[in-house]
Simulated assay, not measured.
Amino acid sequence: MMYLFLDYLEVLLVALLICIFCDVEQKNRYCLISSVISFLVMEFMQTYDLFGNEMAYAITIINFIIVSVMKKEIKFYNFIPCIFSQWISVFTSTIVLFFFKVITNYNIENIIKLYRIPIIFLARILFFTLIVVLNYFKSKIKNTIIEKNKYLLTITMMLIFGIYFILLNDIGHMHLIIDDIYLVLL
């Protein structure tokens, strides 16, 4: 039951971050629809052990479609926050794993087996903290970085997104054992 709550919390935080940067008018409705659909997709894919790029692609594309439907227009640079939210999710988990590795001096496999719930919980807290910080600087980020380079950023993010998840397909989910996984992800 705790895993279901933490999974839902992750997709809710992803929806919140996307909602902030895509300027969706009905924020509560978007967060509810996006988080419920993403949660159902996540649980379905986890049931069949489809982690990694399959789940990331599915959730990113679903969020992009929901944003496009809610805004009644398709703007490909709305894909940037959809990708970015997945990266932040992986990044926060990586930071927490690194933190536990430094403190405990265990390898990644043992850390994930012994401290799974605290790692997931702390990663969600770090994710929420980053959302608050990004929301505070939203106008500066959106006006200076995204608006001036939106087409270049969109193409670059789509390419990086594809390469990133192809390279890290199974590494992040322990199908391939790499002791210093946090270095690869960082």
Rank of each mutant, 00 (worst) to 15 (best):
M1W: 11
M1L: 11
M1G: 15
M2Y: 12
M2E: 11
Y3R: 15
L4V: 15
F5C: 09
L6N: 08
D7E: 10
Y8H: 12
Y8M: 08
L9M: 11
V11H: 00
L12I: 12
V14L: 07
L16W: 13
L16C: 10
L17I: 11
I20P: 00
I20M: 03
R29P: 01
R29T: 14
C31F: 07
I33C: 07
S34Y: 07
S34D: 04
V36G: 05
I37Q: 01
I37W: 00
F39W: 01
E43Y: 12
F44V: 14
F44N: 09
L50H: 03
N53D: 04
E54V: 14
M55N: 04
M55A: 11
M55P: 02
A56L: 09
T60G: 06
N63A: 04
V67E: 01
M70T: 15
M70I: 13
K71H: 07
I74K: 10
I74Q: 06
I74P: 06
K75R: 13
Y77W: 10
F79C: 05
P81G: 03
F84V: 13
Q86E: 05
Q86P: 00
I88R: 04
I88S: 04
S89A: 10
V90D: 03
S93D: 06
T94I: 05
T94E: 00
T94R: 00
V96C: 01
V96L: 02
L97K: 05
F98S: 13
F99C: 13
F99Y: 14
F99P: 03
F100S: 04
I103M: 05
Y106R: 12
Y106G: 10
N107E: 08
I108S: 11
E109A: 12
I111C: 09
I112L: 13
I117Q: 10
P118L: 00
I119R: 06
I119W: 04
I120R: 09
F121Y: 12
A123C: 09
A123K: 11
I125M: 10
F127Y: 15
T129D: 06
L130H: 11
I131L: 03
V132A: 06
V133N: 13
N135H: 11
Y136D: 08
F137K: 13
F137H: 15
K142I: 07
K142D: 03
K142Y: 14
N143W: 01
I145V: 15
I145H: 07
I146W: 06
I146Y: 01
I146Q: 04
E147F: 12
E147R: 11
K148G: 02
L152V: 15
L152D: 06
L152S: 13
L153N: 04
I155N: 05
T156Y: 13
M157Y: 13
F161R: 07
G162F: 04
I163D: 01
I163C: 08
Y164A: 06
F165V: 01
I166N: 12
I166A: 13
L168V: 08
N169R: 08
M174Q: 09
H175P: 00
I178C: 02
I178F: 04
D179E: 14
Y182C: 07
Y182N: 05
L183H: 08
L185G: 03
